[in-house]
């Protein structure tokens, strides 16, 4: 019962509002041979983010998970994507224009504020361990009695 309550709390507790003042961010991401550089971009929740995609070998794209945004860029013609990062969490971005054999694995990551899903996952994992060990200890104790 307690465990269920704790699990529910961890899984569904509302996220505290972001306390950092949103800022304007301009981030240039270079795309080359199945790699974004920088591959991990971190912004605060609420920031107004402009991603500038610059392809440096062949035509690449950038599709942002969760935000469902897409942009493509030819070498020499960088393209921009501007949006408000109002959804916290970690979001993969993937190449959206076939750019060679490893194209499906060309992946980067945008961190927006705190990754609450990850924190919840860690909390639930820890709780799960406690639950498993306690339950069995309880069962063992009963058996010993």
């Amino acid at each position: 019962m307690t465990v269920a309550l704790a699990a529910t709390t961890i899984a569904f507790a509302p996220v505290p509002a972001a306390t950092v003042t949103p800022v304007e961010r301009h981030i240039r991401i270079e795309a080359k041979s199945f790699e974004y550089s920088p591959a991990v971009v971190t912004v605060n929740s609420g920031d107004r983010v402009t991603l500038e995609l610059a392809a440096t070998d062949v035509v690449h794209g950038l599709y942002l998970d969760g935000y469902d945004l897409n942009v493509t860029a030819d070498p020499g013609q960088p393209a921009r994507l501007t949006f408000i990062a109002d959804r916290p969490g970690a979001f993969r971005f993937r190449c959206s224009v076939t750019c060679g054999p490893l194209h499906p694995f060309m992946i980067g990551k945008l961190n927006v504020g705190s990754n609450w899903l990850m924190l919840r996952a860690v909390g639930l994992a820890a709780l799960g361990i406690v639950f498993v060990t306690q339950r069995c200890r309880g069962a063992g104790a009963q058996r010993n009695l």
């Binding site: 199945f34 790699e35 974004y36 991990v40």
Partner: peptide, 15 residues
Amino acid sequence: AVMLGPWGALKSAAY
């Protein structure tokens, strides 16, 4: 790590 991670060098090495 190799396929879904952000490390291009790792992908190229595996390829």
